[in-house]
């Protein structure tokens, strides 16, 4: 597994003196969150968060309601921040939704709500609908991704007949078929049993893409490059897993 050698011993504050680099256009690859605040009604869920994500395996942990789920939804423009800016490889999520969604795939917690077509093959093909591909290319991409996740034999199976682990793989296949550069996972193992959780963990750890994983599943992220700990809408720790997680566990007690 590739591990980033960049140090993460201090919080990255965008624009703050001493930060590693302030990207200028054309932007360095990465997702940059700059002074982002967001509210739902009267509740402030994110308070002036600034962070740049460039590592290949990044975890986001925190208690329920800490803002981590809202944060994850900013990364592919599902949510546009009230204040501040989110850019993906230089594309602002507020005005380049199309480019951002091409770059950032999103795997939701409950695969049942992410699978939107009646059969496995149809669902996998959904992400290709708007892309200019020939029917042959399209079929090829579908077959390739089904084979990669061992779903070929389920091609024409109704999606609701799949097991929990198979559904999570299908959800992932449906996202990866568009070949995004980043994949955001929202609690990918929470609804799975131990065996399927391990299987999904292994899939995440071997992805060619950058993975940003919101999770409570600490073993899953042990070997990650970087862990952000959220609390009350702020990043309270930003470090390698061993240090960030011990801080997180200390705070939880």
């Amino acid at each position: 597994m590739i591990r980033s050698s960049v140090g993460h011993m201090f919080p990255r504050l965008h624009g703050a003196a001493g930060s590693v680099s302030v990207p200028s256009l054309p932007a360095a690859p990465g997702i940059e969150i700059a002074e982002v605040s967001h509210r739902f009604g009267d509740t402030e869920v994110l308070r002036n968060v600034s962070v740049t994500l460039t590592e290949r395996r990044i975890a986001i942990v925190g208690a329920n309601g800490s803002g981590k789920s809202t944060f994850s939804r900013l990364l592919n423009g599902l949510l546009v921040p009230e204040r501040g800016r989110v850019t993906v490889d230089g594309h602002d999520t507020a005005n380049a939704a199309k480019a951002v969604r091409r770059k950032v795939g999103f795997v939701f917690q409950n695969p049942d709500n992410q699978i939107v077509f009646p059969t496995v093959a149809e669902d996998v093909a959904f992400g290709l609908k708007g892309q200019k591909l020939s029917a042959d290319e399209r079929a090829e991409r579908v077959e390739e991704i089904l084979a990669r996740y061992g779903l070929e034999h389920l091609r024409d199976r109704p999606a609701h007949k799949l097991s929990g682990g198979q559904k999570q793989l299908l959800a992932l296949a449906g996202v990866l078929i568009t070949r995004p550069d980043y994949v955001v996972f929202d609690e990918p193992t929470t609804l799975l049993d131990l065996r399927n959780a391990r299987m999904v963990g292994q899939v995440i750890n071997t992805l060619a893409q950058t993975a940003i994983v919101v999770t409570h599943d600490l073993p899953l992220i042990e070997a990650f490059d970087r862990v952000l700990v959220f609390d009350q809408g702020r990043i309270i720790a930003d470090d390698v897993p061993s240090k960030a997680l011990s801080e997180y566990v200390r705070r939880m007690q």
Partner: peptide
Amino acid sequence: SAEDIADAIEARSGHD
């Protein structure tokens, strides 16, 4: 679940 489904469709449709 409708909320999540709509989000998922939007997240997955990389088209115009």
